[in-house]
């Protein structure tokens, strides 16, 4: 088992590196590989003027493509890790940031920030993330509180209230967008995961949130294993159930908010990546969380690479690619599950 995990880990890291290189190299403006290599050497070794390539290549490479690829990697890692965490917490393979309503709540927060022009303050773009986090936390609190029965949060009521409150948040988001037609295009683009401009700024804003979330989840991942026996058993095995639920829900919400605030509403990553990895490496969350980071990043960067190039020069929102590839895969998974049950 240990050997297998190591094999999967090495494969995933090589895969991620390969996808990252491809994603940086391929785009609507063709840059020859030789020039890419030279430009990188230049930056890495601080050599000046190795080549005489036009400086627009350097701008495209370092200020447009690279930040976008890194942003997508962070978003994918966040959604997959948050998805695995929700699935573990609620002992439900279908739980993901969208089903528990968190993403919709974060989306509402971000829409309010974008449409009410709250960005024009010293915090700038990070206002979107903060608003998304507040939206996500409020939604989660309402979902958890309305689902609580006798000091416990049963999975069924939790998912039902997640769907209901998520729908409410989505409806409110649409309403706000319609009330502010001037910001409609902006909000629509953002929602489909097509937040473009900004260069490295979104990455810089997002990075600390994602790191904090990942560390909190990683150091508490073992508790997710024990949670699989049910909350009462987890309590009887010495786990401080309520405290860990708050830590893990906050961390997963933080990562979802960071992902939603710049990636928009990108579905299926949080559902499919943990599922595939679980069938390969098993359900030990101490491993699964780490693998989800790499797997989620690879999946979303690859989806974005396809989104940028399939109808080039027109770019598609990455959410369309994840949904188009995710849905058939999901049906395939369900059918396989049905067969194994038979």
């Amino acid at each position: 088992m240990a050997k297998r995990s190591l094999g999967v880990a090495i494969t995933l890291i090589i895969l991620l590196c390969g996808i990252l290189i491809l994603a940086i190299a391929i785009g609507s403006v063709k840059i020859p590989p030789k020039i890419i290599l030279e430009l990188f050497l230049e930056r890495l070794l601080l050599i000046e003027n190795v080549n005489n390539s036009p400086s627009k290549f350097a701008t495209i490479l370092f200020d447009i493509r690279m930040p976008r690829v890194v942003l997508m990697a962070l978003t994918g890692a966040s959604l997959a890790t948050a998805g695995a965490t929700y699935q573990g917490l609620f002992r439900n393979p279908l739980a993901d940031p969208y089903l528990v309503g968190v993403a919709s709540g974060a989306g509402l927060g971000a829409t309010i920030a974008i449409n009410m022009n709250l960005i024009d303050n010293p915090l700038g773009l990070s206002t979107i993330t903060i608003a998304a986090f507040i939206g996500g936390i409020i939604t989660t609190s309402i979902v958890v509180l309305s689902a609580r029965i006798n000091n416990t949060t049963p999975v069924t009521t939790m998912l039902l209230s997640g769907i209901a409150i998520g729908s409410f948040a989505t409806a409110s988001t649409t309403l706000i967008m319609l009330r502010h037609p001037d910001g409609l295009q902006k909000a629509f683009n953002w929602m489909l995961g097509a937040y473009l401009g900004g260069g490295w700024t979104p990455v810089k804003i997002m990075f600390p949130y994602v790191m904090l979330g990942i560390l909190l989840i990683y150091f508490n991942a073992y508790a997710l294993n024990v949670f699989q026996l049910g909350e009462e058993q987890a309590h009887q095995l010495g786990i401080n159930v309520e405290k860990l639920k708050i830590i893990l829900i906050s961390a997963a919400t933080l990562m979802t908010a960071a992902a939603v605030s710049f990636g928009g509403l990108i579905g299926f990553v949080g559902l499919i990546v943990p599922h595939i990895l679980r069938t390969i490496i098993g359900s030990d969350y101490r491993k699964l969380i780490v693998f989800c980071m790499f797997g989620g990043a690879s999946f979303l960067v690859l989806s974005d690479l396809i989104a940028r190039n399939i109808m080039s020069p027109q770019e598609l929102p990455v959410g369309i690619i994840t949904a188009l590839s995710g849905t058939p895969f999901f049906i395939f998974l369900l059918r396989k599950l049905k067969k194994s049950v038979k």
């Binding site: 002992r91 024990v226 026996l229 049910g230 058993q233 009887q236 095995l237 010495g238 359900s283 030990d284």
Partner: peptide
């Protein structure tokens, strides 16, 4: 939990876990 342990009436056992994984959870 180092003093008292419980065998509940109904046990939730996660599908992907092996027998050894489950018993190992007792070391929590």
């Amino acid at each position: 939990a180092q003093i008292i342990s419980v065998v509940p009436q109904k046990s939730l056992l996660p599908d992907h876990f092996t027998v050894r994984d489950i018993v190992m959870l007792g070391r929590t």
